[in-house]
Design a protein around this nucleic acid. Structure first.
Lengths: 135, 135
DNA sequence: TGTATCATTGTATCTATGTATCATTGTACC
DNA sequence: GGTACAATGATACATAGATACAATGATACA
């Protein structure tokens, strides 16, 4: 289920305060952490993903560079961008925790920005969790 | 019929008691309400409007932020400022709830895919919330 | 087999636009 | 007059987009 013209479920929201480069980075990190993006696989080119998200390709390039700095991907001039294998099982576990924390942080910030309480945010997460229990 | 170098009929009066940031805010709000500024259209940049009114661009930025807080416009760092579609109080409440649910849904799906339990996801959200309590 | 050319892909740099922070001003109140 | 506070301005910063550049690989052809 893609959320854009690439095969990746990535969406951005210009209305959020979080910079869109960070929105892209956080979602790709989560996709790597959860295994949707596997080691060795190629990411969309900066221009492909940018076109799909209707943003400038430099913004995607910045997201890729941040992920490269984290050691998650390898960006290769003239060739493309590829997912790296985790250095160790511990690194993999750390990545999952960091990916989760980043998403939780984003949810917390936006929920607060929209005026919701912590209890309301938690309730929304519980509802979302239950909603996907059945399938 | 513009009252300055932009195409917008906005004027300010330094002699009035009301702060000029509020004068700007009020006139833009009226232009949106009457339909002169339509949803999706881009407002002048803070520097453009400031130059036209011969005031500091920070003052325009403050007016824009106030309107953003009212939910009338969307100010986007590095991109510009845009008029939002009007929404009744009920509709905007629904949109707000849906935005929260969408974020919660994304978090739930990624967290589950990464192998976390509901309790772990909730704990991450609580941590994130506490982490931003200070400011 | 070498190389010229071209398309593809990421990089560097500059511009445009909003943000954050501190200084200045001016006005109200004592 | 002096002081406190709100409003405005000045300046440095952060984010996103535009455009020119550089590296890689595929293809054609000598």
């Amino acid at each position: 289920m893609a959320s854009n013209e690439t095969d990746l479920p990535i969406t951005i929201d210009f209305r959020l305060r979080t910079p869109i480069a960070e929105q892209v980075r956080d979602q790709i990190r989560a996709l790597i952490a959860e295994g949707t993006l596997r080691p060795g696989s190629q990411l969309p080119t900066v221009r492909q993903l940018a076109a799909a998200l209707r943003i400038n390709f430099n913004t995607v390039a910045r997201a890729y560079r941040m992920l490269a700095a984290e050691g998650l991907i390898s960006v290769q001039h003239g060739r493309g961008t590829f997912v790296l294998a985790p250095a160790s099982p511990e690194a993999s576990a750390t990545l999952r925790r960091e990916a989760l924390d980043a998403l939780a942080q984003a949810l917390a910030e936006h929920a607060r920005q929209m005026g919701f309480s912590e209890a309301e945010a938690l309730a929304a997460l519980r509802r979302a969790w239950q909603r996907q229990e059945p399938p």
